[in-house]
Design a protein around this nucleic acid. Structure first.
Lengths: 230, 230
DNA sequence: CCAAAAGTGTTTATAATACACCCATGG
DNA sequence: CCATGGGTGTATTATAAACACTTTTGG
């Protein structure tokens, strides 16, 4: 394979697709945006949102375009997960999939647009069967999300602008799929100095009422500490 | 992009290449196997080892095939790094690159085969200019290697079967590009219980002589602790 | 008044870090 | 006899983990 020759002509070309594992968080529950395929192959089954990489765009750009079409949002957190390349992973045509994961503020996205595309938010705890190798993509994406959330405070990408520490903890419990100690989580999170307490309180989720917090602008990422041990 | 139609015919296909960031370790130095391109585009410049994904193979298989051709080795540690997909990253032809990093036991590989392919081991500390986006690939690969080495003891993939703790520490210093405390490194590494001390000693690297160690078969990976804080 | 979450504090265990010190030996 | 790495021990600090307890308030 080292001597490749002057031109690439003798090699094959393949379709290059994008598949997006789209995470959202609502009702104390981590959710995935899936859609009901309206076309062959695998028509009628559930799959990740996807599309193909156009001639003039990078895969990152393609992923952003696809997400914008679905959610109406521009500023989405996006990270490459992995390429899935088994020769027989799709139908007869060979398709390489570049998988991304995205974090969506469900409170901001265009719900009507999502509906009209036959898409649906599924709880991560009870996913339907997925086509092809999409389940594997979800697993890898969750792994990546855990690594990210373990090293920096996610939340600005998934929660509303202001939130209580209960909501933040529930988000982390959903991501890591285990319970976290109230006091220790609180101490850890506040020690990062990336949250600002607001004067307003939330009284709907507890009798006593809890202060709202928000992320301090620009203060993020300076931490890079271990929030949750993987 | 959601309504894709029944067939994929209207979308474009691209070449799918593999680029391998091949790490080796010798003379207390982390090295990269690069080669001198003998063909256009970018003939005569240095680049990563690469090739194209064949019709009947996955990208993992393709990467293994390429590495086997270059080094003669079968059992190489391999990990996907990332896809590089800028539309203009290669020449006129659009080529998507799937980048892998590999860890090579330099003491085991076929040196003659490497030479004959115009390849050369370069110190990571003084790399030549690389073609296209290959420098970026190297940087990402090193990041991945640091994450891996930070969570489990690499070394079986890079060092000879038996090695001293000095050699292991030097390897870690090369990977993380910083000095590590002798005593603390020793304590940490031995606490993982994956190394076995041999009776033999190395007397070439110190006056007193240091015990050789080897990895205990199968004992790996049970640790998954933090060896070096990233 | 009680259940449920908010919020604070304390204790213990574990891990990271810095560094001192003796050992062995070839030159 | 000394420079160099081998190897061990210890003190200090930081972080993680477990958990007790007090506060607040709607039902």
């Amino acid at each position: 394979m080292i001597i490749m020759g002057e031109k690439y002509n003798k090699f094959s070309k393949y379709f290059v697709a994008i598949d997006c594992v789209i995470f959202g968080y609502v009702d104390d529950d981590l959710k995935l945006l899936l859609y009901h395929r309206g076309f062959e192959p695998a028509k009628g089954q559930w799959s990740l949102m996807g599309g193909f990489v156009g001639e003039e765009e990078s895969s990152d750009t393609a992923a952003r375009r696809i997400l914008k079409n679905i959610t109406g949002l521009d500023d989405i957190y996006l990270e490459q997960v992995q390429a899935f390349t088994n020769p027989d992973r799709d139908s007869e045509d060979r398709v390489i999939s570049l998988t991304y994961f995205a974090l969506i503020r469900i409170d901001k996205h265009k719900a009507d647009k999502v509906k009209e595309n036959g898409a649906h938010w599924w709880s991560l705890k009870a996913l339907p069967n997925l086509v092809f190798d999409h389940k594997e993509m979800v697993d890898k994406a969750l792994e990546k999300l855990q690594i990210k959330a373990g090293l920096e405070l996610v939340g600005s990408e998934l929660l509303p602008d202001q939130f209580t520490l209960l909501q933040l903890r529930k988000l982390y419990e959903a991501i890591f799929q285990k319970e976290l100690d109230t006091g220790n989580f609180r101490k850890k999170v506040l020690s990062l100095k990336v949250l600002q307490r607001l004067d307003e309180r939330n009284t709907t989720e507890s009798r006593r009422g809890a202060y709202y917090f928000k992320f301090i602008d620009g203060a993020k990422d300076k931490s890079f500490e271990r929030i949750v041990k993987i």
